[in-house]
Simulated scan of single mutants.
Amino acid sequence: MHASYYHQAHACIMVFDVQRKVTYKNLNSWYKELREFRPEIPCIVVANKIDVDMKVTQKSFNFARKFGLPFYFVSAADGTNVVKLFNDAIKMAVAYKENSQDFMDEVLRELESFDLQKSENLSDQEESCPEEKPPSA
């Protein structure tokens, strides 16, 4: 992943494939990387492809519990829990955006409200200001 993927993110949905154990094992590194760039955004963990074998919903996946993250069993193929997942992710993202105390969000808000034109005009004025002469005695 690249840092730009996290730029201005307000929520994260981390998905693993219940048929591919390696994707579950990757959650730790994905989560660590996410927290380097966006330490506070809400994150949801998703077990996908439950339509292949519904018995997988009886399994316990400790990753989400370990970090206190919401967990969903979904099937992108048949739509099971997909709408609920996205509705919940959107609600979490909006709540986070409205109440964020994250330093990066504060910086981004400042940059969004920064008036580049005004800044350029101030720079131009500084360059055109006459030099001050010392007071004569």
Rank of each mutant, 00 (worst) to 15 (best):
Y31A: 00
A64I: 04
K97M: 05
V94I: 14
K118T: 06
D17K: 10
G79I: 01
P42C: 05
D78E: 12
E112G: 05
E33M: 14
S75Y: 08
Q58A: 11
Y6G: 03
S100T: 00
V83M: 07
K66E: 13
P42V: 09
K97P: 00
F63W: 04
E40F: 02
W30T: 04
S75Q: 11
D124Y: 08
K21V: 01
E110G: 13
D51K: 00
V82Y: 02
N99H: 13
R109L: 12
A47R: 00
M14K: 14
Y24E: 03
N62R: 12
L122N: 13
A93G: 05
S4P: 00
L85P: 03
F103C: 09
K66R: 12
F61C: 03
P39M: 11
K25P: 00
K66M: 10
Q101F: 08
F37E: 08
F61L: 03
N48P: 06
L85M: 11
N87S: 12
Q117A: 13
L27M: 10
N121W: 07
E40Y: 01
W30R: 07
N81V: 01
S60L: 01
Q101P: 02
V15W: 13
S4V: 05
L122I: 08
L108Q: 11
S113I: 05
K21R: 13
Q19S: 13
D88W: 00
F67E: 11
D78V: 12
N48H: 12
D124K: 15
P70F: 06
K55T: 07
Y31S: 00
N62P: 01
P42H: 09
K49F: 05
M54N: 09
W30P: 02
G68N: 11
Y72C: 01
C12K: 01
S4F: 10
V52Y: 04
S100R: 01
K21L: 07
T57W: 02
V18S: 10
